[in-house]
Structure formats: C-alpha cells, structure tokens
C-alpha cells in the first residue's frame, strides 16, 4: 500500500473485519463503533480508491467540490474528514436524503445544480483543493473540464469514470481511452480500474496544468 490515508480516515475493526472508517453520524446502516462509522467500499468508489492505496493526495481538512453526490453515501464520509464540502447533485429525489446527511454536518453544503453548468454555482463555491467526480452520465470528461476552474493550483481531480454511462455497447477499455484523450488542462497522475468491487469503473487521479 503506497497511498497514506487522510487524517480522519482510519482502518478499524468492525466485527473482526478491518475496515476504513470516519467519525460522524451514521448514514446508510453501516456498522459503528463509538463515534466511528465503517466506510463501505463496495458502495463507495472513493472508499475503494483509498482502500487500494491509490495516491489521492488527500490529507484531511481540505476544501472539496463533490460532483454527483446522490444520497450522500460517499460525500458523508468526505465531509467527516474534510473541511468545507460542496455537494452538487441534479436529481431531486436523492437530495432529500442528502439533506438529512447535511443536517448533522455543518461543513456540508448541498447544491441542487447541474454539474455541466458550473456558472450556476461558481457564485457559491470557492476554489477547492479537491474535486471528487462520480456523475455516471454521458460526457464525464466534459464535466471534469468544465469544473477545472474550481481547482487550486496544486489541486487534485479524483474522478470515477463509469464506462457504461458513456456507451453500453463499447469496450470499457476504449471508453476509458476516450476519456483520457478528452480530458483537457489536466495531467493524469494515476489511473486504476476498480473491478471487481465496481465493475467497469476507472478511477483517475489528475492535477490541473496551467
């Protein structure tokens, strides 16, 4: 394992299993131990990236823009160890649950906005250290490109690309290649497929070039 875990994320024992954990209110029925809550890496791609020891650059306390927050499974853990966390999600239904997650997390800011239209939230979101992107929709490279404006100079993009969202019929390897070639203004630092925990998903760590 190369990557270090950010401060606020630890490996702890839950029912005799060593698992990633953060401190905060439980959200999705995960096991807890005192203040600590297990981070289910089968339900969270960022969790899987950290568990595999990918070098994410996360150290804890950073400012985060999270794109595709859904009901908050992953962003709840992010808000547990990070600083101000801006969560963008454009579907109303999961935002109901996301609001419950935010109720106990004063550093989590919920924005019901479209990640393809950053102008609609650039008046709220400050420059960030990290963008976490998990939008599972067509045009994932474009979303990353459009949101690059939010990254500080030495910031990191942690993106998860879902092959089937781009093209159900294409070979995932080709979809991932296209994603890399369409990424603009970023230098890719590392990529890793998340199979078998998350089939046909590619995790990408990148930093903005200036």
């Amino acid at each position: 394992m190369t990557g270090t875990l950010p401060t606020g994320v630890e490996r702890r024992r839950f029912d005799s299993n060593e698992r990633l954990a953060t401190r905060g209110q439980p959200v999705y029925g995960e096991p807890t131990d005192g203040d600590w809550r297990a981070w289910d890496i089968r339900r969270s791609k960022l969790g899987a990236m950290l568990d595999r020891g990918m070098e994410t650059g996360l150290s804890g306390d950073e400012t985060v823009l999270y794109l595709g927050a859904a009901a908050g499974t992953t962003v709840s853990h992010v808000a547990d160890f990070a600083g101000p966390t801006y969560a963008v999600e454009f579907a109303a239904r999961p935002v109901r649950d996301l609001l419950t997650v935010a109720d106990s997390r004063p550093n989590l800011f919920v924005l019901l906005k479209d990640a393809r239209k950053p102008e609609a939230y650039a008046h709220v979101v400050e420059p960030v250290d990290v963008i976490v992107q998990d939008v599972a929709t067509r045009g994932q490279a474009r979303v990353a490109n459009e949101n690059r404006r939010f990254l500080k100079q030495n910031g990191r993009l942690l993106a998860v690309v879902k092959a089937r969202s781009e093209d159900v019929t294409a070979d995932p390897t080709d979809v991932f290649e296209t994603f890399r070639s369409q990424l603009e203004g970023y230098e890719i630092l590392d990529t890793e497929r998340l199979d078998p925990l998350h089939d046909d998903h590619l995790a990408v760590v990148a930093r903005p070039t200036w």
């Binding site: 101000p84 924005l111 102008e119 609609a120 650039a122 008046h123 709220v124 979101v125 400050e126 420059p127 960030v128 404006r149 939010f150």
Partner: peptide, 13 residues
C-alpha cells in the same frame, strides 16, 4: 443562491 451565477469561483468566504 438559486438564481445567481458567476463565471469563476473566488475566495468567497
């Protein structure tokens, strides 16, 4: 919050 916009982010806090 709902209707505003900006081209780029800034150190809003």
């Amino acid at each position: 919050i709902e209707h505003g916009s900006a081209e780029s982010p800034a150190a809003w806090p």
